[in-house]
Amino acid sequence: MENRNYISSYCAVKEGEVIVDHSTSYSEKTLPSIDFIKSVYKHFQLNYPKFYKMDHLCKLAFVTSELLLKSNPVTQKYSSEDIAIIIANSTSSLEIDTEHQNTISDKNNYFPSPAIFVYTLSNILIGEIAIRNSIKGENTFFIFDKFDPDFMSSYINSLLNSGKAKCCITGWVDFYENKYESFLYTVEKEKGTLNIEHTSEQLKKLFNN
């Protein structure tokens, strides 16, 4: 089997900007983190009521994945069990972990809630993307100090080369203390319009842009 794989589409949401496949599709530099993410949701008229229940991390993952899959609707091309979702970040779910901790730290004001607690797992954002798009393939959430193009490219290439997935939605989604950064992309055997080989070097370039 051909061992090359390609980045067929990507979406980055950071520093008040949304970039899809090299071009800025929305920019709003004045809003603080979560307000900016909500403004992305409104700007692109992403109609999904569950969005409002999500924590900040999942909201960021949701808007990024929606715009990625709008640009490259892989769910129409592959069967649900052949699409993998493999995402990483640095701060896990610490944003909502802190919120849950605040609900239990004072015995006189004790109010832990399942609606918060359920989000205290980083892989819930994979679940949200899977549910939204009926994707049933491999899923894994990794935690790294920084985005690791070497590991991610080699692990995902081998997943595709061994036939364990035909397409992978992957990348980085991080939200903590008002800092946010997301970069999701699709990897396929086909070149797609972007025609960027899925190598560590290419990934580094795209991520740092």
Binding site: V118, I126, G127, E128, I135, K136, E138, N139
Partner: peptide, 11 residues
Amino acid sequence: GSSSNDANHIS
């Protein structure tokens, strides 16, 4: 070994 998602509900 393999993993999957049932794409049904988060909890």
